[in-house]
């Protein structure tokens, strides 16, 4: 069995930390995973994808057209990565648009971006992760809010709440991260279940 995930966002949003937290949580439950990430040049505010292959996979990249879950930390980047997702896949979206740092770009609207997932009849969930992260104490933990939401969806075996909280307790800024996790977790349960 394999379960493929792709995280899409902008360099600096904490995608690698999010992937490490996911892999560590899985490892606590003896589930292997491979993360593939990009360092160097593309990290400086550029478009970034992180792949996570959970279970029996040996190779590092989640397949286009064969990825079970897309987690978008930013809406433009989520749409850019939409080709990865399977028809029966799940999309988790941070309701947040970040303007690319180059002059004179034409920006798509929030509705246009979300319509991609709507029109393709995908199961998608919109999470106000920036807002919830601020509530938790710092906008920088929006990635952990999304992690809470992921765990609450209960789609990936081995990604459970108690292991997740144990992993988060080992981070620096433990309190803020745990609060962010709970807010994301609770949001999914209250809004979607």
């Amino acid at each position: 069995m394999e379960y493929n995930v792709i995280l899409a966002g902008v360099g600096g949003q904490g995608l690698i930390t999010l992937a490490r937290v996911i892999a560590s949580t899985l490892l606590m439950n003896n589930v292997n995973s491979i993360i593939a990430e990009t360092h160097g040049m593309s990290q400086r505010g550029g478009s970034v994808n992180v792949h996570i292959r959970v279970g029996d996979a040996l190779s590092p990249l989640s397949p286009v057209g064969g990825t079970h879950m897309l987690v978008g930390l930013e809406l433009i980047e989520a749409v850019r990565a939409a080709k990865y997702i399977r028809r029966d896949g799940i999309v988790l979206l941070n309701n947040y648009i970040l303007k690319p740092g180059i002059p004179g770009v034409k920006m798509p609207s929030r509705e246009e971006l979300i319509s991609v997932f709507k029109e393709n009849n995908l199961r998608y969930y919109i999470i106000p992760a920036q807002k919830l992260a601020k509530e938790a104490g710092n906008v920088i933990v929006a990635n952990i809010v999304m992690f809470g939401a992921m765990v609450a969806l209960n789609e990936i075996s081995g990604l459970d709440k108690s292991a997740a909280k144990e992993v988060l307790s080992g981070l620096r800024f433990k309190e803020i991260n745990l609060r962010a996790f709970e807010l994301g977790y609770k949001y999914v349960l209250e809004e979607f279940k």
């Binding site: 550029g46 478009s47 433009i76 939409a82 080709k83 034409k106 246009e112 319509s115 991609v116």
Partner: peptide
């Protein structure tokens, strides 16, 4: 594979 035809995405090079 899901296609994204309707939306024009701005490029996001590293800065």
């Amino acid at each position: 594979v899901i296609t994204v035809d309707g939306v024009e995405l701005p490029p996001r090079p590293p800065v």
